[in-house]
Design a protein around this nucleic acid. Structure first.
Lengths: 348, 348
DNA sequence: TGACAAAGTTGGAACGTTCCAAATATTAAT
DNA sequence: ATTAATATTTGGAACGTTCCAACTTTGTCA
């Protein structure tokens, strides 16, 4: 014993029934007699049977596979890690399991992992596409009728579902808030300028700025890598200007943290001498000092909602593309200087 | 067209050969004539064929499945996210794809996802077990001959491979370093006291402390959740002591960041008035201000190495359990106060 | 008792691939 | 031209499951 795996036929023999009956038991069919059912189940436990899903959904070409794939462009960014967790919770409770792959912004890698996932028979895909992904790259998927939900970054011509956050509204609100606090030289800091997300966030910033007394000033937008190091770097550039800004709306929280680091290195206290607003509301935002004022996008929530959209399409049979925008809200904490009272910490 | 999927038989018909030949082409067999090979490949491209791995490894019961599973206890912790990335890179280049699931420290969930992955036919598993996992829980896996590599947390009686970092050496080095800088009241801060990792790190701290003039003092170890918030909390408790510490060896980087937050909230400057050492060297450690002195464990490296151990076992056929400890090293940055010169930042 | 329905069970065939042994085509050697 | 060797191709059978149609058993009613 031990060599070959235990199959439904072994169970049938041991239980003195036919393989068909065992199959019915596996599917919890009401057709089978209660006594046989318990007997079969007992034998299964005894022999250590494990269901072979591969064989099962080879037979049922119609029903799909209980596997979904999620491919993200940068798993080391905790935004995506949390998004993955959100997806995981809902697919798990729907009895699915997820392939997860990281592309590190490489289109080639992305193509490979998507191909590999198809070969393994995923019944749907959640994709946060690598920079530079074209509608063309998704063509094979839609041709094959595989449901796809794009998250975070949308792709113009692709006929697939998408779920992005309301970037325009987010930065718009951030600027309004800073302006209401009396700031006028407000910078837009960080992010790669060749992405749609950047355009949207910058758009919100611009539209809000144009309603202020200062108006839009191009020198106030300084881009950089969307990372903590990028934030440090971008701030350094911003502070060399003749009239440096007094506040910054950052591309994301990582950049905002970098900006805070850079300020402190210059002996400028974020939240006191300079206002900083982030974007994303990652988990550290609320515990850092000073707590980060930011635009909350709830990455886990997006993951969950994306997973729900995907499962809906999978169950619907015919994939009906749907695009949604996830609303965002401004979370006012300390880094923008709005909280004048020093918050006391609970002590044991 | 478009309803049924394209199979190897369709290709065979269209190319005027037999399905066996097509199969040989798929496996890049040297037996097939060059001209037929190119023809078959052309037809495949034309008809949009996608390989059905499920069917394939149903046939070859011997060869395994090109899927590995990775289950972690907390994906929102960036340590694990990076570990997952490390695993991903090596399994991807070995032509594998990974299932990833998050257990959120729930044993039930862990049992479910492992069962699900088995049903899907994974050929190996990398597990960072949920708190409280017993050797018993892994029994079915080893009985079935499925290779398992435990990472981060080892489980005493389990007959599977493991790869953990040298926790004892890490905290030992941290204490030695702080003592050399002149500190004597050195606290050990954070972590749940019911885990093996905690014991090991505390052990290294204790052994090093017993060699100092102060010796081991139990009131200097204050545990907490291994998170940023936990660090804030633990520091608060530590500072209420009659003779508060002047330095802290932290359970991990998240706790260390929390300790820094807590210090700043008390107007104590980390790296100047108080020395802080972390454990893990997460990605933010080097960019934060002050840069965190910490024990580097290179999570991506661990992920890669674990994946290599697993692949080796998968290829070996018979799983030979092997346990390794990954060495760690002290990275001296600013938070311990050792760097007296203020590091200048590169400007554009 | 016979007919009929309901409940429960069952033996193939099928899913898309790989493997094997055997068949055929090609080339080289006599 | 015949044989031997080599190169290439091929038709089932098998993998573990589900589905279907048909079968057997049991119970009900006249």
């Amino acid at each position: 014993m031990g060599k070959g795996r235990v199959t439904v036929i072994d169970i049938a023999k041991a239980a003195g029934v036919s393989k068909s009956t065992v199959s019915l038991v596996l599917q919890a069919s009401p057709l089978v007699n209660e006594s046989t059912r318990t007997k079969v189940n007992a034998v299964m436990r005894e022999l250590g049977y494990v269901y072979n899903r591969g064989a099962a959904n080879l037979r049922q070409a119609n029903a799909r596979s209980k596997i979904i794939g999620i491919v993200v462009n940068d798993l080391t960014n905790s935004f995506f890690a949390e998004l993955a967790v959100g997806v995981d919770t809902v697919v798990q409770s729907a009895g699915f399991v997820q392939f997860l792959s990281n592309t590190s912004e490489s289109i080639d890698r992305q193509r490979e992992v998507i191909a590999s996932m198809r070969e393994h028979g995923v019944s749907g895909l959640i994709i946060s596409p690598a920079r530079g992904t074209e509608a063309f790259d998704l063509k094979p998927l839609v041709m094959a009728g595989i449901p796809v939900v794009l998250v975070v970054r949308n792709i113009p011509g692709a006929k697939v579902s998408s779920l992005v956050s309301d970037n325009h509204a987010g930065t718009f609100a951030a600027v309004e808030h800073l302006a209401a606090l009396g700031h006028s030289r407000i910078a837009f800091v960080g992010g790669f300028s060749d992405t749609a997300v950047f355009d949207e966030r910058l758009g919100g910033y611009r539209d809000a700025m144009s309603k202020t007394s200062t108006g839009v000033r191009d020198e106030l937008v300084v881009s950089s890598a969307p990372s903590r190091a990028g934030g440090v770097d971008a701030l350094a550039r911003a502070m060399t200007m003749p009239e440096p800004p007094t506040a910054a709306v950052c591309f994301n929280d990582a950049v905002a943290f970098g900006v805070c680091d850079g300020l402190r290195a210059r002996r400028i206290e974020p939240g006191k001498d300079f206002a900083v607003v982030g974007f994303d509301d990652v988990i550290e935002a609320k515990t850092t000092v000073p707590a980060l004022t930011t635009i909350s996008v709830d990455p886990q929530g997006i993951g969950q909602r994306a997973a729900q959209m995907l499962l809906k399409q999978i169950n619907a049979g015919k994939p009906e593309a749907e695009s949604a925008v996830s609303s965002v809200r401004l979370i006012v904490r300390e880094s923008c200087g709005a909280a004048m009272n020093k918050p006391g910490r609970k002590m044991a």
